[in-house]
Write a protein that binds this DNA or RNA. Structure first.
Lengths: 187, 187
DNA sequence: ATTGAATTTTGACAATTGTCAAAAAGCTTC
DNA sequence: GAAGCTTTTTGACAATTGTCAAAATTCAAT
């Protein structure tokens, strides 16, 4: 929990009361490898902070699993679409390693956002950061070759190949596993 | 200006004082077709509300213009990366039609965010919405075929082909203009 | 160490898309 | 309406990536 509080202070300072209120609202969740945090069709009612571990978000499209996102230590993870709209999720969240998470419910978060301007600020700033990150991913995805995207990924997350299978990485990059294998043999 | 105030109330309610403060901070900007709102290398110090018109964001990569984004009536537009970080922009913003915009400076917005919890809320909720939209674009970009992406675009923004040239649309879809032309002849 | 399952690599071929060049179609302006 | 510009389409070919199938490798559990 200290790690979570430490991490969010990078976004914005917090009053003592706000910090205490946050502290009271998060609960620890321990998950084993391959376990699902969320499956499609369910409404995502929690936001999670991934203290330690690895996770992927994926869609089922035409019977295929399409990984579109990874989370690692110190990431906030949820199905943002479902969490924000409280509509059924179209994506699945699955742990890739045994992991430690901290969870807060939508209701509790909403209450904190109402009570504390500085928590509202914190969340706004966090969204700014996540928006920029997503925009970067988007531009990479759309406008670079498969090889460039893989090299970019290695730069951004050098630990990825150790923690995530080639199939998941290929899916994330939007290329077939065979193509990724060939790219790796060429580099 | 009424249109802007009307629009943001869709995100969150505003106190009278907050609304008045917002009203005082926005300035009208009228732009002609092809004019640039921002060029790369400059720090983006304003957030714009596009009351009426059309705009694209594009990168210059290896001498080529890569359009990654369109804005239309009722969109907030800026180089989010530069506006948020106050680092030099890597993208350009160019009007595609004669347009009416409303502009607020980063400094003034920061002041409003500090003074009014409900404006902080408004911006947080706006980010939520823009995050979801971007996520959808991302998934489309990465995991659908060129034809599917074009059909999706027609569904989301049926007016696009009337207002935006084929070359820009092709760039936005991440395919060559020739390929898009062939896709259109097949549909 | 050995077995069996899962993951990764390799090969052959097909499908999609890109590139370059030229023709056709649409718009403006006189 | 003709001239000159921009935008869109078409053709031919090359490059990239996908698909299917099989082989090789890695990993975990006994």
């Amino acid at each position: 929990m200290q790690q979570l509080l430490q991490h969010i202070k990078l976004y914005a300072p917090l009053s003592e009361e706000a910090e205490q209120a946050l502290y009271d609202c998060f609960e620890q969740v321990v998950c084993s490898k391959n376990q699902h945090l969320l499956t499609e069709g369910k409404i995502c009612r929690h936001l999670y902070f991934l203290e330690k571990g690895a996770l992927r978000g994926y869609y089922n499209i035409d019977g295929k699993e399409i990984t579109h996102w990874f989370g690692f230590d110190n990431d906030f993870v949820t199905s943002f679409h479902s969490f924000i709209t409280q509509e059924p999720s179209v994506e699945n969240l699955q742990l890739l390693e045994g992991s430690i998470l901290w969870s807060i419910s939508k209701d509790k978060l909403t209450e904190l956002l109402n009570r504390f301007h500085d928590i509202e600020r914190l969340v706004r700033v966090a969204y700014e950061n996540y928006y920029i990150r997503l925009e970067e991913r988007y531009v990479n995805a759309q406008f670079k070759t498969a090889t460039e995207r893989y090299e970019q990924l290695l730069k951004d997350a050098p630990h990825i190949p150790d923690r995530v299978s080639l199939g998941h990485i290929a899916s994330y990059l939007g290329i077939s596993q065979e193509t990724l294998s060939r790219i790796r043999s060429r580099i």
